[in-house]
């Protein structure tokens, strides 16, 4: 339960109040699967869960993308190269990489939700032949909020993946889509009967995206989502992240939708 120490290697601004940091763990790397998270601590401030956002093939270079929303995330986002950071993890369930093999893969990301999904993209694009059609639908607030923009532009040049980006509103210079990410789902080219969908973003956006995926014919057991709740221990002891009958840290954060379906509709949890 005690944190290991890592050192910040690099820090890059990735959007308004969003920073991507690279951490080198002092005592060797710990392999992770896409979808998992680390508990990161800013010493003297506190500890929070932050998803992996880097390439799982490079576990010696831990990459995390952080939005500064409060004391701990802001302290983490401010760390400069060379400074220490506390590390516990990796924790949690991952995206269903094995089940995705041979099937069409539809990734629906909203806002910062692209960060926990990025680790799936490296193996998906790297071993492209293992999968059917690959579709990435990404929605965010405005053109200035597009996360990992240069990487998205590079990936978009590939002919064997479909990447569509949409924003909620834009000025006249934006040539891309404007509208909600769910509107891209019926237009995307994939076979709903054999596709698997990964969804990550704000909870309301995920509920709308799931409704749109079900509308085009995806079964509930073909939809996966990543949930966020405040956490403390990250190992299923403290009950802080309880969500109805599940603990997000121990049973999630990635869940198959049929497991959460009834809980998602309940306001009180």
């Amino acid at each position: 339960m005690l944190p290991r120490i890592g050192r910040i290697q690099r820090r890059r601004r990735d959007g308004p109040e969003i920073w991507t940091i690279e951490i080198e763990p002092e005592h060797g790397a710990a392999a992770f699967v896409p979808g998992q998270f680390n508990m990161l601590s800013a010493f003297g401030v506190g500890e929070v869960p932050i998803s992996m956002s880097g390439d799982p093939a490079e576990p010696g270079r831990l990459v995390h993308t952080i939005r500064a929303v409060g004391p701990v995330s802001s302290a983490l986002a401010r760390l400069e190269p060379g400074q220490p950071v506390g590390l516990r993890g990796p924790f949690g369930s991952g995206w269903p990489m094995e089940e995705m093999a041979g099937r069409d893969v539809v990734i629906v990301a909203g806002g910062l939700g692209l960060a926990p999904l990025r680790p799936t993209l490296y193996p998906l694009f790297g071993e492209r032949a293992r999968y059917g059609k690959v579709v990435l639908l990404y929605g965010t607030r405005s053109p200035g909020d597009i996360l990992f923009r240069r990487e998205l532009e590079r990936w978009r040049r590939r002919l064997d993946i479909d990447i569509e980006v949409t924003v909620d509103h834009a000025g006249v210079n934006w040539r891309g889509h404007v509208g909600v990410v769910t509107a891209l789902i019926p237009r995307a080219a994939f076979d709903p009967l054999q596709a698997i969908a990964l969804v990550c973003g704000p909870e309301i956006m995920m509920r709308f995206a799931i409704a749109a995926l079900r509308n085009v014919g995806l079964a509930d057991d073909a939809i996966y989502l990543s949930m966020e709740r405040n956490m403390k221990c990250a190992v299923g002891f403290c009950g802080h992240c309880q969500f109805g009958t599940v603990l997000i840290c121990r049973d999630g954060p990635v869940f198959r939708y049929d497991r959460l379906r009834d809980l998602l509709a309940v306001k009180e949890i």
């Binding site: 109040e17 806002g111 769910t182 309301i204």
Partner: peptide, 18 residues
Amino acid sequence: ERLQATRLQILDVYGSPG
């Protein structure tokens, strides 16, 4: 569909909390 999309846009779900 447009009404629902407008709701999502008004809620500004991608904005920072607070």
